[in-house]
Design a protein around this nucleic acid. Structure first.
Lengths: 158, 158
DNA sequence: GGTCATGGTGCATGATTATACGAGGATTGC
DNA sequence: GCAATCCTCGTATAATCATGCACCATGACC
């Protein structure tokens, strides 16, 4: 009985790393980390966390932070840039769209290019928007989660 | 008489006015406005709109706007701009690409942003080209048709 | 210790949402 | 016209989620 708080912390971590489309899927991910609970408990946890079920999986409300536990990666230039300028990230099939403040898209795109993110086919930046073409929809999903983390946005829309 | 687009506009309107906790509740609100459909249809509509089910009811993704209340759809700024500057429209999966005369892309993209088209995740304009990322390939198709109409291009794309 | 209140959980089940399938209408090409 | 196609939607049902209830553990209090 490691505790509810800890479990919810792990749930946050999982949701930020990978797309989760159902509570059953989440249950299995938790089991993989040695935490076994029923779907009913997850239903309660997700409500308490304020998680939303979107067509692209469960999303945490913005402001939810991962327990610095495992996500403690030193801040890369990309992370700093993203956290500073990116205001929103959305996925659509195999394309990721990032929004920034006016005039900042170029800077962010430059850093993304330098970072050499796996699966990224190319970036195209305007004034406040960046399109990222990704090799596959699947990879786009994953990448979006990662980028949301870097940008410290936690949840996508609203 | 494509009730679908109209219905989705009404759904957006309802979701922005009052909390809706279930599709059944939404169904009743729609019925109150004279639109009668089944829960299955709403499930599809909500997915296309990208709506998320949160502990506080259904939420629309940021950027979704109420859209012209159908009646005022006569000659919008978007329609005028599109008809004036857009020379070609093509769809690729979930991305729509519009071509304009040299230097006109920015103007058109600006109007598209203002229009708050349903399903549009973001626009990016160069000099004579505009990329539009759409939430789904399905929605991209529909939107392309609508845009072709606005641009008075008949069957340009495809 | 005994009793009570509180919080967290599983189980079973009700409520809600998603989807496979097919019908009906519109459009296109012949 | 007629067949082929594409859309949209309802029906039926599967899949998923929420919750009433009971149980157990813990801690406060007598």
């Amino acid at each position: 009985m490691t505790g509810r708080a800890r479990r919810q912390q792990v749930i946050i971590d999982i949701l930020q790393r990978q797309p989760v489309d159902s509570q059953e899927e989440l249950r299995q991910s938790l089991a993989g980390r040695g935490i076994e609970v029923t779907q009913a408990t997850l239903s309660r946890d997700l409500r308490e966390l304020g998680a939303a079920k979107t067509p692209r999986g469960y999303q945490l409300p913005s402001g939810t932070t991962p327990g610095r536990s495992e996500s403690a990666r030193a801040l890369t230039p990309l992370a700093r840039t993203m956290a500073s300028f990116v205001t929103d990230i959305q996925t659509a099939c195999n394309t990721i769209v990032l929004r920034t403040g006016p005039g900042h898209a170029q800077i962010v795109a430059l850093e993304m290019d330098r970072a050499g993110l796996v699966g990224v086919v190319g970036c195209l930046a305007g004034d406040d928007t960046i399109f990222v073409a990704v090799a596959s929809a699947q990879r786009a999903k994953e990448l979006t989660r990662e980028l949301l983390g870097l940008a410290e946005l936690a949840g996508a829309g609203r």
